[in-house]
Design a protein around this nucleic acid. Structure first.
Length: 560
RNA sequence: UGGGGGAUAGUUUAGCGGUAAAACUCCCGGCUCUGACCCGGGCAUCCUUGGUUCGAAUCCAGGUCCCCCAGCCA
C-alpha cells in the first residue's frame, strides 16, 4: 500500500554499504547530507536524493543535514534558498542541521594556505584559454604550468592578495599540484579557488575569491562529520580528487563518497539548465507551473508528498543509467489518491440533457457516496432536475461497436440518479448536437430498476439548477518525445505544443466550489484533480493531477 | 585510441554458486452504479564467447555496446 513506507535496510547498494559500515564499526552513527546549489528549484530528481539521504539517516538512526552548496555567487539567489527549504519540508523531511558551504569559507581558506605551505597548491597566472590548451586531451597528457614551481612564499603572498581583491576576475587561480599527466582529467592540477568580484547571498562582499565545488565539498563534509557523502554518477571521476583533498588536509573526520544513478523520466527533462530556460523564456508560467517536474510544480498539480516518496521507492537506487517510464509516476499517484480522494461529479465539456417526462420546475435531492469503497467517507446530496448536463464524450449519434454510453434509443444510468433513454437530439444550424431529449424511468430512482434490467453504462452529470461554472486545466506531458533532445539535440524542439488544455466552461457540482487548494478529489470517471490557487469561490479553477486509466480510450483510439 | 563506470522482461529494480522474483507498461479474460478500483492469465536467448563447477545471472578470461570526464559550473 502506498502509505506503508518500508523501513527495513539493505534494499539497495547504498544501504548495504551503510549497514556494512555500521556492522563493522567503521562508523558509530551514520550522517548524510543533501547538498543543493541554490541556483534553481528542486525537481523530482532531487527528490530521489533527498529521500535517499534523509531516508537512510532515519532508517539507521543517524542524522542528516541540509547544506547549501553556495560556492558560486554569480548563479545563486536567496529565492532559491527559501524555495529549497520549503520543498524539502513539504516532501516530508526535517534536517537535523542547516548549513552552508559559505559558513566554512574562512576554514576552507586556511586549509588552502595549508596546501600551499605543504607544496600541494600554487597560484597560477595562466589565462583560461591557455590553461585549457595546457590541460591536454583525453588521450594526451597536459603540460605543467610555468608557474607551477613558484615558492611557498610567493604563492602565499599572491593568494593573500587574491583574497584582498587586488586582481580582476580571471587573472589568477589557486591550483592543486597533482599530476598533469593523469588519465583522470580532474587530477590535472584542478582549480581550487577563482577570483570572483561578486556579491554572495550570505557573505555579501566579504570575499573576492571563492572555492570551487571540488575543493569545498569534501572539506565541508568533513567539518560536518558526514560519514556517507552520496552523490550522482557524474561525480565519480571526481572522487580521487575528493579523497586527495581530504588526505592532504588536517580535517576532523574522513567522509567517503558514493555515487548512484540520477533519475530520468520519459517525456520530461530533469536538468536545471533546461528548466531554468523554460522559466526564463516564459514557456511555462513559473517554477511551480503544474507541467514542471519541479517539486513545486508537482505539488501544485495536486500530487501528495507521499506519492512522490512512494515513486522514489518504486524506482529504486542503482548504478546503471536509466529512464523511468512516466507511466510509473502516474500509476503511483493513482494508487496513492484512489483510496483517499473524495468522489465528485464534474462535466468538463457540457452537453445539455432535458428529461421530457420530468416535471418542469421540479428538483429533488439524491444521495451520492463520497467514496465507493469507504463508507466512512460519508455521503452528500446532489440535485436532480429536468435539465442536466452530461459529458459530450458520453454521447455519440452514430456510435461504433462497444460504445456503451448514450446514443439515440439507448438507455444508461445517471450516476446515483435514474435510468434515462435518449429519444432525440437537437442540432444547431451547423448540424452540431446541442441538446439531448430524453425520458427517464421514475422507478429507477437511486440507480436501480425494480425489474432488474441492466444498463451498459453509468455516466456522470450535473444539474443545470445548481452546477457551478469552473475552469479546468488538463495537463499533458511537457515534451512530445520520451527522450527530449535525443534526436536533434535541441530539447526545445521537442516541446509539446498541447501540454495544457484549458476548459473554461466546465460545470461542477456545488460541493466542489469550496474545495481547498491542493486537496485531491476524483472527478468520477475522469481523473484526480485539485483546486488551483488561481481560482476563487465564484470561479474555481482545477488542475488535473492525473487521469484515470481509460481502457475505452485505448479501444476507441482517442487520446485520454 | 587515456581514465572511470554500467549491462537481468518493453521500463525500473531483486537476485550475492542451487536452477530467474516484483512493480509499471502491454495483451487476453472476469467483476462492476466510475469502461475506475479489484481479481485471474500471458509476456526473459540474464549483452556475448569461452572457462571453472555436479550446478553460473552470480566466479574467471576475452569481446561487444552504452554512460561520464578536457568549466576559473555543480
Amino acid at each position: 500500500m502506498a502509505d506503508t513506507e518500508t523501513t527495513e535496510a539493505g534494499r539497495d547498494f547504498v544501504r548495504d554499504i551503510v549497514q556494512a559500515d555500521l556492522d563493522a564499526g567503521r562508523v558509530q552513527s551514520v550522517v548524510t547530507r543533501f547538498p543543493p546549489e541554490p541556483n534553481g528549484y528542486l525537481h523530482i530528481g532531487h527528490a530521489k536524493s533527498i529521500c535517499l539521504n534523509f531516508g537512510i539517516a532515519t532508517e539507521f538512526g543517524g542524522r542528516s543535514h541540509l547544506r547549501f552548496d553556495d560556492t558560486n555567487p554569480v548563479k545563486e539567489e536567496q529565492e532559491f534558498i527559501d524555495a529549497i527549504q520549503r520543498d524539502v519540508n513539504w516532501l516530508g523531511f526535517q534536517w537535523d542541521a542547516l548549513h552552508h558551504a559559505s559558513d566554512y569559507f574562512e576554514q576552507l581558506y586556511e586549509w588552502a594556505e595549508h596546501l600551499i605551505r605543504t607544496g600541494h597548491a600554487y597560484v597560477d597566472d595562466t589565462p583560461p584559454d591557455q590553461m585549457r590548451a595546457q590541460r591536454g586531451t583525453l588521450t594526451e597528457p597536459g603540460q605543467n604550468s610555468p608557474f607551477r614551481m613558484r615558492s611557498v612564499e610567493e604563492n602565499l603572498d599572491l593568494f593573500r592578495r587574491m583574497r584582498a581583491g587586488e586582481y580582476p576576475n580571471g587573472t589568477r587561480v589557486l591550483r592543486a599540484k597533482i599530476d598533469m599527466a593523469s588519465g583522470n582529467m580532474n587530477l590535472r592540477d584542478p582549480v581550487l579557488y577563482r577570483i570572483l568580484h561578486a556579491s554572495h547571498p550570505r557573505t555579501g562582499d566579504a570575499w573576492k575569491i571563492y572555492p570551487t565545488y571540488d575543493y569545498a565539498h569534501g572539506q565541508s563534509d568533513a567539518i560536518e562529520g558526514i560519514t556517507h557523502s552520496i552523490c550522482t554518477l557524474e561525480f565519480e571521476a571526481h572522487r580521487p580528487l575528493y579523497d586527495w583533498c581530504l588526505d592532504n588536509l588536517p580535517v576532523p573526520s574522513r567522509p567517503r563518497q558514493y555515487e548512484f544513478a540520477r533519475l530520468n523520466i520519459t517525456y520530461t527533462v530533469l536538468s536545471k539548465r533546461v528548466l531554468t530556460t523554460l522559466v526564463r523564456d516564459g514557456v511555462v508560467s513559473g517554477w511551480d507551473d503544474p507541467r514542471m517536474p519541479t517539486i513545486a510544480g508537482i505539488r501544485r498539480r495536486g500530487v501528495p508528498a507521499v506519492a512522490l516518496r512512494e515513486f522514489v521507492k518504486r524506482v529504486g537506487v542503482a548504478r546503471a543509467n536509466s529512464i523511468v517510464d512516466m507511466a510509473l509516476l502516474d500509476a503511483t499517484i493513482r494508487d496513492t489518491l484512489n483510496p483517499v480522494a473524495p468522489r465528485r461529479m464534474a462535466v468538463l465539456r457540457p452537453l445539455k440533457l432535458v428529461i421530457e417526462n420530468y416535471p418542469e420546475g421540479q428538483t429533488e435531492p439524491l444521495t451520492a457516496r463520497n467514496h465507493p469503497d469507504n463508507p466512512e467517507a460519508g455521503e452528500r446530496q446532489v440535485t436532480f432536475g429536468r435539465e442536466l448536463y452530461v459529458e459530450r464524450d458520453d454521447f455519440m449519434e452514430n456510435p461504433p461497436k462497444k460504445f456503451y454510453r448514450l446514443s439515440p434509443g439507448k438507455e444508461v444510468r445517471l450516476r446515483y440518479g435514474f435510468f434515462v433513454t435518449c429519444q432525440s437530439v437537437v442540432k444547431d444550424a451547423a448540424g452540431e448536437v446541442v441538446e439531448l431529449r430524453c425520458t427517464y424511468d421514475p422507478a429507477s430512482r437511486g440507480g436501480n430498476a425494480p425489474d432488474g434490467r441492466k444498463v451498459q453504462a453509468t455516466i456522470h452529470w450535473v444539474s443545470a439548477a445548481d452546477a457551478v461554472r469552473a475552469e479546468v486545466r488538463l495537463y499533458n506531458p511537457l515534451f512530445n518525445r520520451p527522450d527530449p533532445g535525443a534526436e536533434g539535440g535541441d530539447v526545445m524542439a521537442d516541446l509539446n505544443p498541447d501540454s495544457v488544455e484549458v476548459l473554461r466552461d466546465a460545470l461542477v457540482e456545488p460541493a466542489l466550489a469550496s474545495a481547498m487548494v491542493g486537496e485531491a478529489v476524483q472527478f468520477e470517471r475522469q481523473g484526480y484533480f485539485c483546486a488551483d490557487p488561481d481560482g476563487t469561490a465564484e470561479r474555481p479553477v482545477f488542475n488535473r493531477t492525473v487521469g484515470l486509466r481509460d481502457s475505452w480510450a485505448k479501444v476507441s483510439g482517442k487520446p485520454g
